[in-house]
Nucleic acid binder design. Structure first.
Lengths: 333, 333
DNA sequence: CTGTTAGCGCCTTCAT
DNA sequence: ATGAAGGCGCTAACAG
């Protein structure tokens, strides 16, 4: 009735059941499936939990029930600001449903992608959310074979591993290209990072112009500093540059700063467009035109899809296009 | 010898052992403790693993061995750029040692802190790394009782729950205050977020001045936008403002932008100091003076401490002060 | 509504 | 160097 547990051995459900005077499984149900247990029993178990300081062991439960209640979240690198809102929302929505996120970083490296995935799989996650598409064919095949629910995000393809929440990178590039052309800018340039998604946008942009466009490709991570050097590079091969499309708002900000440092007026002498609608974009001077992606929506939808699969609910729409929107501000006015 | 596993049931170690013609435990040792198994046996097991497509189940292993090889990482919010480098490094170092990070977000909320912690504990992490100190006394007590290795980070106290990697926020504030005083600025202001660490820095700053200092406290998240409004607010109650100390570089950037928008020259008419040395700080115009914290070092040390505890190695120094450094740039020249 | 019986997949302990 | 037994803590599948 008392003996609040010697601190040596943490209490198990067995202890709780003993203290509550019920069987093990009844204690289990009182905690995990209260609907089928009488109110008075539930109360006694609750008291026993408090008395013993019991903390459930989800590892053990998961072994039998084959549900770990963990979701693996795989990102190129945590520090890529772009993805944070979606990962944050994903984590929050999952947590609200009792699922935890297991974090993996690939460093944009295919070999590490495979290694990370294998480690993750050995923890038997109930689902996996990738930031970006899964690259390796072998990895894709393996994922399909294991049958874990998989959500790829931040991109678009007709043939995802399983489920997909994203948007077409090529369409973004084309839209920005069309936007530039509509304003009559022909001496245009691209400042871009080297990751696959950014390069798809570059291709889309060039498609809109029907030709190659001067490009400064900067090494990761995409930053203000890189934006400055990118503009310097672009101006070297195209001194009469009229407009620059950037693969991130950080890069675009660097372009703004470098333009200012060179006495180039934005937008009068140089128009600039970013990507991502970072929190600062609207508040720079000049305010930055950019492409808005609804990161939280991506996280939320990814969570929804993964959770639906985990619960065995049917998923009506495996592929969700969250779209995008060009937000026009002063930098392209 | 063949039958590459029906895709329905994933292979277990049992299957591997059968295919390799050894006992279960030998297969286990071949994979987990190869030193005590003959080379030829190891090779046969390796082949059997490939043939069966075996993926170890760390959940099951952890049940008996009581080591989950997971570390819980608890952050206020993932989107706080400040902490990213340390979390990223922590994740990487852990991964290199075969440990995965289980992510939890508290949203700067004490109630959620406790809830998140309980969920984490039910996954039996081998260690817990907190961003910031653990606030609730009950939570601290509970953590101590469970005996899990805990590392608190990004702050300093004489009485951590267990281990600590950080620096004194008050000292940072004092250093910035002393820095301002040494330059003769008396009409100074503070632009700060409302989190506990930022407020400690504010207190330190005021201690250096020996008096209260006009303060604009902005709601989270600390952003460029908030920096702009903070400067507006400060100028209202102190039109002759000479210098502003900001609780983040994002905020400081907003102050720079707002100053520029108002035609206030930085640093001639207004000096600005940030915090964090974000990647953009050095490349703004004017370049931003700020406080450098070595985030990756925090992540690395936290990983080192947690891993040492997990392996039962002695930890010589439970409290690690990584210090800080004011990086003087143009914004305070 | 409650209890009994079997394991989940692996690793620890003790034997050989 | 290898193996046989037992159990980690919990929950599905049946009883009653």
């Amino acid at each position: 009735m008392n003996a609040p547990m010697p601190p040596s051995k943490p209490a198990t459900l067995h202890d709780v059941a003993r203290v509550a005077g019920v069987s093990l499984i009844t204690a289990s149900r009182a905690l995990g499936n209260p609907g089928v247990v009488s109110a008075s029993t539930i109360e006694r178990v609750r008291l026993a939990v408090e008395a013993t300081g019991y903390i459930p062991n989800l590892l053990a439960g998961g072994l039998k029930s084959r549900r770990s209640r963990m979701v693996a979240g795989i990102v190129p690198a945590l520090a890529v600001a772009q993805f944070l809102p979606s990962v944050q929302t994903l984590t929050d929505v999952l947590a609200a449903e009792g699922y935890q996120l297991l974090l993996g970083q690939t460093g944009y490296d295919a070999a590490r992608e495979e290694a990370v995935l294998n480690t993750m799989l050995s923890r038997r996650p109930d689902g996996i959310v990738f930031t970006g598409l899964v690259h390796g064919a072998a990895v894709r095949a393996r994922l399909r074979r294991t049958g874990v629910p998989v959500v790829e995000t931040w991109d678009m393809t007709a043939d995802p591993v399983d489920m997909l929440v994203g948007f077409s990178q090529a369409q973004v590039g084309q839209a920005v290209g069309a936007f530039f052309r509509a304003r009559g800018w022909q001496r245009v340039g691209i400042a871009t990072g080297g990751d696959p998604r950014a390069l798809q946008r570059k291709d889309g942009f060039e498609a809109a112009f029907g030709r190659r466009v001067p490009t400064a490709q900067v090494p990761a991570p995409s930053s203000l500093e890189r934006g400055r050097s990118a503009l310097a590079e672009l101006l070297e091969c195209e001194p009469a540059l009229q407009a620059v499309a950037c693969s991130s708002d950080q890069l675009a900000q660097g372009v703004l700063v470098e333009a200012q440092a060179r006495g180039l007026h934005v937008p009068r002498q140089l128009a600039v467009c970013g990507f991502g609608n970072a929190d600062f974009a609207a508040h720079l001077v000049p305010a930055l035109t950019t492409v808005l992606i609804d990161g939280p929506a991506i996280g939320r939808q990814a969570a929804r899809l993964v959770l639906a699969r985990c619960r065995g609910e049917p998923v009506e729409q495996r592929i969700v296009d969250v779209g995008f929107r060009i937000v026009e501000r002063v930098s392209t006015a």
